[in-house]
Amino acid sequence: MTLTTIIILSIIGLLAGILSGLVGIGGGIIMVPLFILFLGLTQHNAQGLSLAVMLPPVTFFAVYNYHTAGEGGNIDWRIALLVAVLFMIGGFLGSKIALQIDQRMLKKIFGVMMLIVAIKLIFTK
């Protein structure tokens, strides 16, 4: 791995971490496009790498801050547990489906999803 690659990976990791703690995004929306743009990874490689990065408890300290803020924190742990379990099941199923889809089509699906979210965020009060 070259020094340039290490610097790019460091910037991507730090940016994704900051945005994750700041507004709750970082994985797919930030890392996947940057892995493709700056490292030339395929869509499949970028998505897999983004998921691998999130395997360890990368958001532990951000979650801790939200948990300890104010009276009782800002996290409903019952909801978090339910969504986490379903997220794991969905992640398994989604990865099985994604690996069967051509990379070009997967990029288009990913782009459309990002566009829909962006438009909704920009134009919603």
Rank of each mutant, 00 (worst) to 15 (best):
T4G: 06
T4S: 09
I7F: 10
I8C: 02
L9H: 07
S10T: 14
I12C: 01
G13M: 13
L15A: 11
I18P: 02
I18W: 06
L22Q: 06
L22M: 10
V23R: 06
G24S: 13
G28I: 08
I30Q: 09
M31H: 04
M31F: 07
V32F: 05
P33V: 05
L37P: 04
F38S: 01
L39H: 03
G40Y: 08
H44S: 10
N45D: 14
N45W: 14
Q47W: 08
L49S: 10
A52R: 09
V53W: 05
M54P: 03
L55G: 02
P56V: 09
V58T: 09
V58M: 09
N65A: 13
H67R: 13
T68G: 05
T68S: 11
A69V: 10
A69G: 04
G72R: 12
I75L: 14
I75Y: 11
W77I: 15
W77K: 15
W77S: 14
W77A: 14
A80E: 13
A80S: 15
A80F: 14
L81I: 15
V83D: 13
A84L: 15
S95H: 07
K96P: 06
K96W: 12
I97E: 07
Q100G: 14
Q100R: 15
I101A: 09
R104D: 13
R104C: 12
R104K: 14
M105E: 12
K108H: 07
I109H: 05
I109K: 07
G111W: 09
V112N: 02
M113F: 12
L115K: 00
L115S: 05
L115C: 02
I116K: 00
I116P: 01
I116G: 00
A118S: 01
I119R: 00
I119E: 00
K120P: 01
K120A: 03
L121P: 00
T124I: 00
